[in-house]
């Protein structure tokens, strides 16, 4: 029995398009903020993970590649990868790198540092990205775009690796946004959790 598909079942196209657009104009990277703000807003206002459950285009993309295209080995994820220690540890690491990226943007904004036209993959490998047009905006706007695209590309690469090795949506297990929104939901429904544990 196949359920009827609706518009949100095709959000994987948006995710794929986002990655492609970054190769042509790095400023499109700013659109990635939607993937940061919407899940958080839903978790804070609605107290749910509806974004992860229904609207995450990246999750759908992994599902498509790993499931429909059979690229995943479909093996169980190692226990340590799904442990609270790893999930929250990865969230802290991810947020630290994110704030580091914001600091770099601020340095460019304040004129201390010049714009660096590179995309940093896996927080280590600096890929020259000077062809992606950014001539029309202030350097700090472009710097944020390079930094944010680095974050998005890095998480996609990590997601692809775990998709190949384990199950299609293994990324969802340790996705920092998923961990964060689940944390928000736990705080929001603290009374319910306490009641259930008693």
């Amino acid at each position: 029995m196949e359920s009827k598909k609706t518009w949100h079942n095709y959000l994987w196209i948006v995710s794929a398009l986002y990655l492609v657009l970054g190769f042509f104009n790095i400023l499109f990277a700013w659109l990635g903020l939607i993937c940061f703000m919407v899940p958080l807003l839903i978790a804070i206002l609605d107290g749910s993970k509806t974004y992860c459950n229904k609207y995450c285009g990246r999750g759908q993309l992994f599902e498509l590649l790993g499931g429909k295209l059979n690229l995943s080995r479909n093996q169980d994820i190692p226990r340590w990868l799904r442990s609270k220690w790893f999930r929250y540890g990865f969230l802290i690491f991810f947020m630290t790198m994110f704030f580091n990226m914001l600091f770099s943007t601020w340095l460019v904004f304040s004129g201390v540092r010049e714009l660096r036209e590179v995309v940093t993959l896996l927080w280590t490998f600096k890929l020259p990205w000077h062809w992606a047009n950014n001539s029309t905006v202030s350097p700090w706007i472009a710097q944020f775009a390079f930094g944010f695209y680095s974050v998005m590309l890095t998480s996609t690469v990590l997601g692809l690796i775990t998709m190949l090795l384990f199950k299609p949506r293994s990324w969802c297990v340790y996705c920092p946004m998923g961990t964060m929104t689940q944390g928000v939901c736990k705080l929001k429904h603290k009374d319910y959790i306490t009641k259930e544990n008693n």
Partner: peptide, 24 residues
């Protein structure tokens, strides 16, 4: 209890018998 509430189960269940509860 280690569920991460990703919703993959919810999207797969042909009988709508499983759903993510309060994002937990």
């Amino acid at each position: 209890k280690e569920c991460v509430a990703c919703g993959c189960c919810e999207n797969t269940c042909p009988l709508n018998a499983i759903s993510v509860f309060k994002g937990l």
